[in-house]
């Protein structure tokens, strides 16, 4: 394919994704948990718009964090949930809640999420290196194991203070719900930080393209791999932590969105990041709409978002992993 036609193809795909995002965002305002249609009550409209905003930030954060991790670790299966970042952020939030409850302090959950996510990614990053090179299979295994350990720590932190638990419904929290309780200030803070992080990733897009080559090749074209990896590491942690603050740990968005967009427009990181961000937002909005619709149709309470993303993402994960099964990775 010629460069110009490739450019046109990418642009067309990206525009299509963004149009889909706009349509779904409009639909989300029409689909509520109490009724369908344009909300007459301005307060209902505001609540739907706030949920929409959270869904967009969460989806974009998880998807771009996935892209960054895949570039950082040179592994197409890397994503925040699989590598334990989301559960690490959960540990941070629970730890900070416990400290706050013990010393009667009101502490921002987002700080805990950030520390937990960064700490988990550091452990995964350090433990999966063999003589300076990241072992892809080891990385996945360490991520999965660390995710399990984090899950255990969350339950332990929940159980320790008293038998009823720090959060009575920690199991629900771990599946992922949009947190309408976050203050607009926290939401704006996370959104701005996420916007800055994603923009920086887009700026680093070319360097990320080069980083997918071998270390020698990358360095020969003047990319400082060490600095790039540190930056990617920090940004991916911030993005994943931001998503956890707004919606708890949601699985697989960071895996399937980059893969879908990569299939549509190829592996170049700049368009990939932009497309994945929009696709992530689309997926989380669809999940939120499905949750609200199911509530209306089946007369049920709100379903956790993580239920939809886990089913979709789990199937996609197996599908991506399929060619590698039975072989040495």
């Amino acid at each position: 394919m010629k460069t110009s036609s490739l450019y046109r193809h990418r642009s067309a795909v990206l525009i299509t994704i963004f149009i889909a995002l706009i349509i779904l965002a409009a639909l989300r305002v029409l689909v509520g948990s109490t009724s369908w249609g344009w909300p007459q009550d301005i307060r209902v409209r505001d609540y739907r718009l706030f949920r929409l905003g959270i869904a967009c930030v969460v989806g974009a954060n998880l998807a771009t964090s996935g892209v960054a991790l895949q570039a950082l670790l040179r592994n197409a299966l890397a994503e925040p949930f699989i590598l334990g970042l989301s559960t690490g952020a959960g540990v941070g939030i629970m730890g900070l809640t416990l400290i706050g409850r013990t010393f009667d302090l009101t502490l921002g959950a987002h700080y805990g999420a950030m520390i937990g996510a960064a700490l988990t990614l550091t452990i995964v990053f350090m433990a999966s290196r063999r003589q300076g090179v990241i072992d892809p299979l080891g990385l996945l295994l360490i991520g999965v194991v660390l995710s399990t350990i984090n899950g255990g720590i969350i339950l332990l932190l929940n159980y320790l203070p008293h038998s009823e638990g720090l959060w009575e419904n920690v199991a629900k929290w771990m599946v992922g719900y949009i947190q309408e309780g976050v203050s607009p200030a926290v939401f704006m803070g996370v959104a701005l930080l996420s916007g800055a992080g994603i923009s920086l990733l887009v700026v680093l897009g070319r360097a990320m393209d080069v980083a997918t080559l071998s270390d020698d090749e990358a360095q020969s074209v003047g990319v400082n791999l060490k600095a790039l990896r540190t930056l990617l590491f920090i940004i991916a942690s911030i993005l994943a932590a931001g998503a956890v603050v707004l919606a708890g740990p949601i699985a697989f968005v960071g895996l399937i969105c980059p893969h879908i967009v990569r299939m549509l427009i190829g592996p170049r990181h700049r368009p990939l990041l932009i497309g994945a961000a929009a696709m992530g937002a689309v997926l989380v909005i669809v999940a939120d709409m499905a949750s609200a619709s199911l509530k209306l149709v089946l007369d049920r309470g709100l379903m956790p978002l993580g239920v939809f993303t886990a089913i979709l993402g789990g199937i996609s994960f197996l599908w991506i992993l399929r060619p590698k099964l039975g072989r040495e990775i």
Binding site: G32, S33, T34, D41, R43, V44, Y47, R48, F50, R51, Y177, I178, E180, A292, D299, R300, G301, L302
Partner: peptide
């Protein structure tokens, strides 16, 4: 009481209603 479920998860929109 809008739902017949024994327990009901509610978002702000449902709370408002």
């Amino acid at each position: 009481s809008a739902s017949k479920r024994s327990t009901l998860e509610m978002d702000r929109e449902m709370l408002l209603t």
